[in-house]
Amino acid sequence: MQDLALGMPTNQTELDMPPADHIKVGDMAPVIRPAGDNIVELAQMKFGFPPIGKRGPVFNVRSQGRHFSDCHRCLVPASAFFEPTKKKDQKIKHRLTFVDATLMAIAAIWRPSRKGQPSAFAMLTTEPGSDVEPFHNRQLVVLRPRDWKAWIDLDKPEEELLRPLPGGSLKVETARGNGPIGKL
């Protein structure tokens, strides 16, 4: 974090971000959010905003045509993300990781706790890049470490940050089956 010009509070360590094999909508998960003067903190939040009406929780938010300067911005740290597809009656999961880095962050927004509910976050999506397009018509906004601070501070134009990665940035591993992939 220090290499990225993002200071961490002295009372937090890597133990505040325990590893998890798979985080699902409704689970608690770590996010990186602003905590003051050029400092960020790890906070546990619920994945997905509470349901609206008869719909389920909101866990993805389209970024195109929207501005997030008045939102609570955060980062969802991850080593990978998954894109599921279905071929006939078989589920196929595609695990996407950076080709040249071990950690990524997904651009997200969060809301403070309300009505007894914990603070919650939703990830931002954009049109798919060439690495994701074969599997899905949308993709998460994945940020390289050099852009983490820019998203937190919004000191770059949103159009520069909230776009797909260039082709060849992501490695894809595919697994078949109906159960969780686990480690590939």
Score class of each variant (00 low, 15 high):
residue 1 M to V: 07
residue 2 Q to W: 12
residue 4 L to M: 10
residue 5 A to M: 07
residue 6 L to F: 03
residue 6 L to D: 01
residue 8 M to W: 10
residue 10 T to E: 14
residue 10 T to S: 11
residue 10 T to Y: 11
residue 12 Q to S: 06
residue 16 D to L: 03
residue 17 M to C: 15
residue 18 P to S: 08
residue 22 H to T: 09
residue 22 H to P: 00
residue 24 K to A: 13
residue 24 K to Y: 10
residue 25 V to C: 07
residue 28 M to K: 04
residue 29 A to K: 01
residue 29 A to G: 05
residue 30 P to G: 09
residue 33 R to E: 14
residue 33 R to W: 03
residue 35 A to Y: 04
residue 35 A to K: 02
residue 35 A to E: 04
residue 38 N to A: 15
residue 39 I to L: 14
residue 40 V to N: 00
residue 42 L to C: 09
residue 43 A to D: 10
residue 43 A to E: 11
residue 43 A to S: 14
residue 43 A to W: 03
residue 43 A to T: 11
residue 44 Q to L: 12
residue 44 Q to A: 12
residue 47 F to S: 05
residue 48 G to F: 04
residue 50 P to T: 12
residue 50 P to N: 11
residue 52 I to Q: 13
residue 53 G to F: 05
residue 54 K to H: 10
residue 56 G to S: 11
residue 57 P to R: 04
residue 59 F to A: 06
residue 60 N to Q: 11
residue 61 V to H: 05
residue 64 Q to W: 06
residue 65 G to H: 10
residue 66 R to W: 11
residue 70 D to I: 01
residue 73 R to Q: 08
residue 80 A to R: 14
residue 81 F to Q: 07
residue 82 F to I: 11
residue 82 F to Y: 15
residue 82 F to M: 11
residue 84 P to I: 13
residue 85 T to Q: 14
residue 90 Q to F: 08
residue 92 I to L: 11
residue 93 K to H: 08
residue 93 K to T: 13
residue 96 L to S: 02
residue 97 T to S: 14
residue 97 T to V: 12
residue 98 F to K: 04
residue 99 V to K: 14
residue 102 T to L: 07
residue 103 L to D: 00
residue 104 M to F: 02
residue 105 A to V: 06
residue 106 I to G: 01
residue 107 A to L: 05
residue 108 A to C: 09
residue 110 W to D: 07
residue 110 W to P: 01
residue 110 W to Q: 01
residue 111 R to Q: 14
residue 112 P to F: 00
residue 114 R to G: 02
residue 116 G to T: 09
residue 118 P to G: 12
residue 119 S to H: 04
residue 119 S to M: 08
residue 120 A to S: 15
residue 123 M to W: 01
residue 125 T to W: 00
residue 127 E to K: 00
residue 127 E to R: 00
residue 127 E to V: 07
residue 128 P to Q: 01
residue 128 P to M: 05
residue 131 D to S: 09
residue 132 V to S: 03
residue 135 F to T: 01
residue 135 F to C: 00
residue 135 F to I: 09
residue 136 H to W: 12
residue 136 H to R: 10
residue 136 H to E: 08
residue 137 N to H: 15
residue 138 R to N: 04
residue 139 Q to R: 05
residue 140 L to D: 02
residue 140 L to F: 08
residue 141 V to I: 12
residue 141 V to F: 04
residue 141 V to W: 03
residue 142 V to T: 05
residue 143 L to R: 05
residue 143 L to M: 12
residue 144 R to K: 15
residue 144 R to N: 03
residue 145 P to Q: 12
residue 146 R to Q: 12
residue 147 D to A: 05
residue 150 A to N: 13
residue 152 I to S: 04
residue 153 D to G: 06
residue 154 L to M: 10
residue 155 D to H: 13
residue 155 D to A: 10
residue 155 D to W: 12
residue 156 K to R: 15
residue 159 E to Y: 01
residue 159 E to G: 02
residue 160 E to W: 03
residue 160 E to Q: 15
residue 161 L to Y: 00
residue 161 L to T: 02
residue 162 L to C: 09
residue 162 L to Y: 02
residue 165 L to N: 02
residue 165 L to T: 04
residue 167 G to C: 02
residue 174 T to P: 14
residue 177 G to P: 06
residue 179 G to I: 03
residue 183 K to T: 10
residue 183 K to V: 07
